[in-house]
């Protein structure tokens, strides 16, 4: 089984000089293709920072972070954009574009890939929305949807480009138990179908059972579990 994410002695800190605050200390972890990994830990443990480095959103300088064969430590903008395009990102809030319908929001992921025609894009986005159970909400704007439905649209948006990796930052934080569990179950089902790697940050213990592996992060250090 190939390795999707390989992190070796990653160190990261905010600020400089006497104000330097170390966030990640010697983090080392390997994640296989198709694996579902949950990162838990208290607030301020560096979970989200870790996720943004993996996702190519934040620049780290020390250690080694290889995502889909790209070294992200001291990488240039082009490398990060290339990695971002192969990753589906699910945010804490749904972060949908409020001027676009559910269908248009999901299509935004596909507009970066020009190989498709508009028809194919819309068909693909429709299929994806049907897969998350929103086939009857295609033309709804985000404000017309419930928070659980919005998060499902954002799952569809993350998965529609058939990414190798999905990064999810507390996807259930703004959802009640029922819709939160529904959302991650859909995520798991679809990911398993397409052998997608999932790295999910959460401190929602209700969803731990979907993971293949749970990693605990505390004060920037991975605790052996």
């Amino acid at each position: 089984m190939s390795i999707a994410i390989e992190v070796d002695r990653l160190n990261f800190s905010f600020g400089r000089g006497v104000l330097t605050q170390s966030v990640l200390k010697n983090v080392t972890i390997s994640i296989h293709q198709g694996e579902i990994v949950l990162i838990t830990g208290p607030s301020g443990s560096g979970k989200t920072t870790f996720l943004t480095i993996i996702g190519g959103l934040r620049q780290a300088f020390y250690g080694s972070v290889i995502v889909l064969d790209q070294q992200l430590i001291n990488s240039n903008e082009q490398t990060k954009i290339k990695v971002r395009q192969q990753i589906g990102y699910i945010f804490q809030q749904h972060n949908l574009l409020k001027s676009l319908t559910a269908l248009q929001n999901v299509s935004m992921t596909l507009e970066m890939h020009n190989a498709m025609t508009e028809r194919q894009r819309l068909d693909r986005a429709t299929e994806m929305l049907e897969a998350v159970g929103l086939g009857n909400r295609l033309d709804y704007k985000p404000e017309q949807l419930s928070s659980g439905q919005r998060q499902r649209v954002s799952i569809a948006r993350a998965l529609v480009g058939q990414p190798k990796i999905v990064l999810a930052d507390e996807p259930t934080a703004s959802l009640d138990k029922q819709s939160g569990y529904e959302a991650v179950s859909i995520l798991k089902r679809l990911a398993k179908e397409s052998q997608t790697t999932i790295l999910l940050v959460t401190h929602d213990y209700r969803i731990l059972d979907i993971a293949d592996r749970v990693v605990e992060l505390e004060d920037g250090i991975i605790k052996n579990s």
């Binding site: 996702g55 903008e77 954009i81 395009q85 990753i87 990102y89 935004m108 992921t109 970066m112 948006r157």
Partner: peptide, 14 residues
Amino acid sequence: RNEFATLKAMGYEH
């Protein structure tokens, strides 16, 4: 800016 940042995270260029 939130929407633009989201699109950037999805891989859209500046």
